[in-house]
């Protein structure tokens, strides 16, 4: 189940095969959002089909914070001021460095040394004001130890469901959008079974059950049609198309770039 930015790496290492879509008749290219199928294709060949998708925004406890945050620029400002000692960033270089870059007006996936240097400067300046560097932010948000955190779609929906005062915001200046995929390993001992399972999961009637259990939004409009209204109208799970426009998929090189890994280490050890 690769995430978007790993597919090209798996392909390069020869770990996954091109999918024979004729063996997955339930997959429907027409009803899929091309934004998401695109990431599963390399050189016009389909290596992976989307499972679900999501975003990386931030969650705000509005009963603790009066400020209205709309961008990553706001996030990194408020974290140092009104939310001093109460903000959290992920213990994950992709999103933490990416969001810092976005707040400075750079691309989420930048590996340009001068841009990374600016992001590092910002992160190190912010660090003393942070509550924690931790990707397990739900407990702290629920306990109201933290008032502001970087947050993934599913967590945002769960927090908001249980504590309506916690809102979920996508940065209007950008941020991450991601998709998880299904792929079949090259050395899978029983590919026929793999295709059978994949075809089963691509059946909208099955996919909707998976959606209801997991909570992350689907890429297939046939599944959306089967969902209850309270889910499809939830702006955290299904935000307006316009708010997705500035978001970027994380790139493979962003994840494996040693420069970003070292930056993260310096940030954490500062």
């Amino acid at each position: 189940m690769p995430t978007n930015y790993t597919i090209s790496t798996y392909h390069k290492l020869g770990l996954i095969d091109e999918l024979d879509l004729s063996k997955v008749p339930n997959f429907s290219q027409k009803t899929e959002n091309p934004r998401f199928t695109k990431e599963g294709r390399i050189d016009g060949k389909t290596y992976a089909v989307p499972k679900n998708w999501g975003t990386t925004g931030f969650a705000t406890n509005t009963s603790k914070l009066k400020a209205k945050l709309t961008s990553w620029k706001d996030f990194f400002e408020i974290v140092q001021t009104e939310a001093d000692g109460r903000g959290m960033v992920h213990d994950y270089q992709l999103t933490t460095i990416g969001s810092a870059l976005v707040s400075l007006g750079y691309g989420f996936n930048s590996i340009k040394p001068e841009e990374l240097a600016k992001a590092e400067e910002l992160l190190i300046k912010v660090k003393p004001h942070l509550f924690a560097i931790n990707s397990d932010y739900q407990p702290a948000m629920r306990a109201t130890d933290a008032w502001l955190t970087m947050c993934w779609t599913n967590d945002g929906a769960q927090l908001n469901r249980d504590m309506p005062e916690i809102s979920y915001t996508l940065g209007k200046d950008g941020g991450e959008i991601w998709t998880d995929y299904y792929a079949i390993p090259k050395d899978a001992p029983n590919k026929a079974a793999g295709y059978a399972l994949l075809n089963y999961l691509m059946d909208p009637n099955n996919a909707v059950k998976e959606h209801l259990a997991n909570g992350a939004p689907t890429t297939d409009s046939r599944v959306i049609a089967l969902l209850p209204k309270e889910i499809t109208s939830n702006k955290i799970v299904y935000p307006d198309e316009a708010s997705l426009t500035p978001l970027e998929f994380g790139a493979a090189v962003t994840l494996t770039d040693p420069g970003r890994a070292e930056l993260m280490a310096r940030f954490k050890s500062a």
């Binding site: 560097i133 931790n134 280490a265 050890s269």
Partner: peptide
């Protein structure tokens, strides 16, 4: 500690 102090274990 919120992962803000970096130890060898974290590294």
């Amino acid at each position: 500690g919120g992962g803000k102090v970096f130890f060898i274990g974290n590294a």
